[in-house]
Design a protein around this nucleic acid. Structure first.
Length: 278
DNA sequence: CCTGAAACCTGTCTGC
DNA sequence: TGCAGACAGGTTTCAG
């Protein structure tokens, strides 16, 4: 589930959800159910350092969730199938609530609630570090920040000679884009996903810049996208123009949407609106 | 520098 | 029904 809009939605809910908010809670104990979920530090260090730590704030950077603690910072990357839940620690009978299928890490708080990290495919990772920069140092700009201008995008695209879609997916180029929002942005901008990055005209770059910001903002406004069994709650899938719409008509021209593979990723586009040569 | 393949994992869906 | 194969919202590492 996790591209920028889905992670942003999760972060907002953790920070100030309907029935809960993480800031202010103090960790009592931690249960690590799948060792490889932990990227840093080693198990013993992680388990002994966390009790008594208090959550100071919740932030997002790219696709990372940041839990700022009174000492140190927890980073969570959901990768393909990760998710988090907040729920009571105990059942009605007073016993500790059993973990759910595919729960990998549980944080128990002093107020009898817990945060569960659930991840079917085990790709997700968690870090506990003094400074988040240790993990985030190679990330590109935040696409929705004021720093990310059309001319900055133009400069970046010019600097490389790569297919534009894999470049947009490269987190050191731009932080937060994933397969869905990249396909959607390229369609909105009328750019073929395999176009060479340094071949885009100024007009095309401007359209791409606006399209990236538009699809991400709309994604957040819709609380992300829900597809298959993974994510629930979001509604942006109702507005997909090309993603997983093979054979269905392009919303602009009616041509059938096709699927190809670009940079090892399933890629959806309109052959008429997104020609390979402009 | 760029591209593609493979690895890390589990689950679902499709076609024979 | 069973089974093989493709595919899934991500990232890293390695070969050419």
């Amino acid at each position: 589930m996790p591209e920028l809009p889905e992670v942003e939605t999760i972060v907002r809910n953790l920070r100030e959800g309907e029935n809960f908010s993480l800031p202010g809670r103090k960790i009592q104990s931690v249960d690590l159910l799948w060792d490889r979920t932990l990227a840093f530090p080693e198990r013993e260090n992680f388990l002994t350092r966390l009790p008594e730590r208090q959550v100071a704030g919740v932030e997002r950077r790219g696709k990372y969730i940041l839990l700022r603690l009174d000492q140190g910072c927890l980073l969570i990357h959901l990768r393909m199938s990760g998710d988090v839940r907040v729920e009571p620690s105990f059942d009605v009978d007073g016993g500790r609530r059993a973990s759910a299928l595919h729960d990998r890490l549980l944080f128990y708080f002093e107020d009898a609630t817990r945060l569960a990290f659930n991840d079917t495919r085990k790709f997700g990772r968690v870090w506990l570090v003094d400074s988040p920069d240790q993990v985030l140092k190679d990330l590109g700009p935040e696409p929705l920040s004021e720093d990310f201008t059309a001319s900055l995008l133009a400069e970046g695209l010019r600097k490389h000679k790569r297919q534009v879609k894999p470049l947009l997916l490269d987190q050191s180029f731009l932080a937060g884009m994933g397969n869905i929002y990249t396909d959607e942005a390229l369609h909105l901008a009328g750019i073929h996903p395999a176009r060479q990055s340094d071949s885009l005209t100024e007009e095309e770059v401007d359209r791409l810049w606006a399209a990236i910001r538009h699809v991400l903002s709309e994604g957040i406004r819709q609380n992300g996208s829900s597809i298959d069994w993974v994510y629930r709650g979001g509604g942006f899938q109702n507005y997909f123009r090309v993603y997983r719409r093979v054979g269905l008509p392009c919303p602009v021209c009616g041509t059938k949407i096709v699927r190809v593979v670009v940079g090892q990723r399933g890629t959806h586009f309109c052959p008429l609106c997104q020609p390979l040569r402009s």
